[in-house]
């Protein structure tokens, strides 16, 4: 089995969206295009309870077929890579489950196989996760309250690139912030395989009060290249992996 490219959007935010379309709705649209939406919510260090705005985090990821996690700043680096990897495994499992349904008929999923067979299937999933190519678009909320967290975010992104580049498959990253000055999102780093070399990417940002998460997600979807999107519309295949 040869794999194509897994596509993910990683949204990093610390609050609730307050402008434009409902991000959960947009996320389900993005997921339809074969792009997984993962969300990480960052807590203030002095918060002991989860603030209300962050409930949205789970909802967006749920609709985006992705993984969500709410963390304190110091756990960000590790969380970013766990979330990315977990989402990859889940996407691949989804693909494998579809294959199983086709082969075994009815609603057979991995979870319903006896443990021995499940283990064999899992070996395939692990193998795919290691060898497939990956594209991650990182979408960072740069509204006012995020300012003091941005250095940590940058460190976490460098760490993510170290983790993903240790795989056999290729990984590419792009970093965008929202809100942009004029558009809903603004490019900080164009598609690249190495984020290790980025330095102070968040240096020149103007932090405003609005958080247009929905429009930002929608715009981010288009950054994966329009060619792929169109092809996905025509081929009504399951959308997570193309066979090369």
């Amino acid at each position: 089995m040869k794999t194509g490219t897994l596509k993910q959007i990683l949204l990093i935010t610390d609050g609730c969206s307050n402008q434009g379309e409902d991000p959960a709705l947009v996320a389900s649209l993005v997921a339809e295009q074969g792009i997984t939406v993962n969300v990480i919510g960052i807590l203030e260090d002095d918060h002991t309870e989860q603030p209300e705005g962050l409930e949205e985090v789970e909802e967006i990821a749920g609709n985006g077929h992705g993984v969500s996690q709410i963390v304190y700043q110091d756990a960000l680096a590790q969380t970013v890579q766990t979330v990315t990897k977990q989402a990859m495994t889940e996407t691949l499992q989804g693909v494998v489950n579809n294959e199983l349904t086709q082969i075994l008929g009815s609603e057979k999923t991995m979870e319903e196989l006896p443990p021995d067979q499940r283990g064999e299937v899992m070996e395939v999933v692990d193998e795919l996760g290691e060898t497939c190519d990956l594209e991650v678009l990182v979408l960072v909320d740069t509204s006012a309250s995020m300012t003091n967290k941005l250095p940590t975010v940058q460190e976490a992104l460098i760490d993510l690139s170290i983790s993903m580049n240790a795989r056999i498959g290729r990984s590419r990253f792009a970093v965008y912030q929202f809100p942009g000055r004029k558009k809903s999102i603004q490019q900080l780093v164009d598609w690249t395989s190495k984020l290790d070399s980025i330095t102070s990417i968040f240096a020149k940002i103007s932090s405003g009060g609005i958080t247009p998460t929905g429009p930002a997600l929608k715009e981010a979807m288009y950054q994966f290249g329009k060619k792929t999107l169109r092809r996905r519309f025509i081929r009504d295949d399951y959308t997570d992996i193309e066979e090369a």
């Binding site: 170290i162 983790s163 993903m164 580049n165 240790a166 795989r167 056999i168």
Partner: peptide, 22 residues
């Protein structure tokens, strides 16, 4: 030859900038 599946920062070679996570 694969990428490290699970790690803990304090013990992680890449965290200490002493090598990769392979």
């Amino acid at each position: 030859g694969r990428s490290i599946k699970e790690y803990t920062e304090f013990y992680d070679r890449a965290y200490w900038q002493c090598g990769s996570r392979k």
